[in-house]
Design a binder for these strands. Structure first.
Lengths: 255, 255
DNA sequence: CGGTATATTGAAGTCGGTCAAACCCGGTGG
DNA sequence: CCACCGGGTTTGACCGACTTCAATATACCG
């Protein structure tokens, strides 16, 4: 179930900034441009770089756009009445933010950059219009939503702290590897321990402890902002029950 | 963000069994027929009733169809190497099964009827073809996937047993109410305690205990296969942090 | 009816959470 | 250059919610 790139070699949009974007081959925003070349320049969705901590939208804001991540990392999160923050998802280059808002009139969560990020805003109405024009893009859209659903369902299971963290690390490694960012199984942790903990339904202390155990076992080399995987097999075995590492499933940039 | 019914009053497909189906107004299968009237009879997707315990597909089966639930209830579940079963979702009339397989070549879970169920099988290729023809249907499809994603993300949070079970019961009540099946806040529990427990990441014993507590508080009247909600407000307050009860979000049949 | 699966109830155990203190590291300013 | 500061991270001790194990009760179905 492979997907062909959405662009053609001599597409007029390539003149714009989109064509130079690292992820344009798999970008839905780029595809929208391709469908509407009359509306050049093709970088009309492009926004200035979003700084760490800046918000893209807030919970309750009117749902108007789907956001495509070009670079960096974004988290979505909710805050309950006691002020507890809960991270619902991390979004890396190629991901779309706001898909869980389509069934509503407003966003169900806040979206905030956890690293300097480049984001494109796609008007939802225009996006759906383009989907009808471009069968390839419709396919890609369904794939992206299916992927998100699959990951959410997989990770929502009842696993040990070790299993969930192992799965998370391997998923990150896989994503970064496909972006060509990985050298020697070296992962860059763009998000804080606290955010990882919240995402995995664990306490930050637990993250520290588990990483400590992994390190003591010689499976990883842990540093605050980066992390090196030394024993992929051990982590894979541990993470297997979570099920998001199945190779037949393309959960990467291109999915 | 309301969606108009997909059928027109004098649609030729109404002659088939689909037109008499209780959920045809919101059924994607019905919409596929509407898009291809030449291929009548319209009930070609219809399958004989699936008995309780019968499987619709198995994990690893080639992904070819999306299944639409017309009546009854289906669960999807995985089994890890230790034989532990984990329920990933319950599917009620109007729901689509297999959306998390779109990004893969095979189904990631087993699907099994937990009550006598009527199921329609939609070939995925034909479904995507129809999506391009019918803007309304594309919208509906995106809504359905968004809804599933939203629910999965919401329920995947780290909540107490009480919160999760309250949210589950209210969600069930809401769904059954919209089907017109609810009389006097009386819920029919088509699935077993064990399945509910697995779905909510709890032990079956915990389900019993919490239901016992709810009953002792006078909030519900609990019976093995049915359940009556006596204090909706109390349950709603409890379930609020889970967030799947937001009225602005149409998570029902029609979403 | 009896037999089996499911549901309930009780007692003991465990994993991860909470709370508190120590540590580390980058940034600031003297 | 170094002392100080403040967030994030790490580590330890204790605690609590849920699980597990075991026994009983109830419902279902031939």
């Amino acid at each position: 179930m492979t997907i062909e790139p959405l662009h053609s070699a001599n597409n007029p949009c390539d003149a714009g900034r989109c064509g130079q974007c690292a992820i344009h081959e798999v970008c839905v925003a780029y595809a929208v441009d391709t469908a509407h070349p009359a509306q050049r320049p093709s970088n009309r969705y492009y926004r200035p770089e979003t700084a760490t901590g800046s918000h893209i939208f807030w919970s309750g804001d009117d749902f108007r756009h789907i956001y495509a991540v070009k670079s960096g990392c974004v988290k979505t999160y909710t805050v309950d009445e006691d002020g507890n923050e809960r991270v619902r998802g991390f979004y890396l280059p190629g991901d779309l933010i706001g898909l869980d808002a389509i069934c509503a009139s407003s966003y169900p969560s806040n979206a905030c950059a956890v690293a300097p990020s480049q984001i494109c805003a796609l008007p939802y109405t225009q996006l759906t219009a383009s989907l009808a024009d471009l069968p390839n893009m419709q396919t890609r859209m369904l794939h992206l939503m299916s992927k998100d659903l699959f990951i959410a369902l997989s990770l929502s299971g009842d696993f040990t702290a070790e299993q969930r963290l192992a799965a998370f690390l391997l998923h990150l490694l896989d994503r970064e590897r496909r972006q060509g960012l990985v050298k020697d199984n070296h992962i860059e942790l763009l998000m804080s321990r606290r955010d990882i903990a919240s995402y995995l339904r664990l306490a930050p202390e637990t993250i520290s402890r588990v990483l400590g155990r992994f390190q003591k076992s010689g499976w990883i080399q842990s540093q605050p902002k980066t992390l090196k995987v030394l024993n992929l097999a051990a982590l894979s075995t541990l993470a297997e029950p979570v099920g998001i590492l199945d190779d037949s499933r393309d959960l990467s940039l291109a999915a």
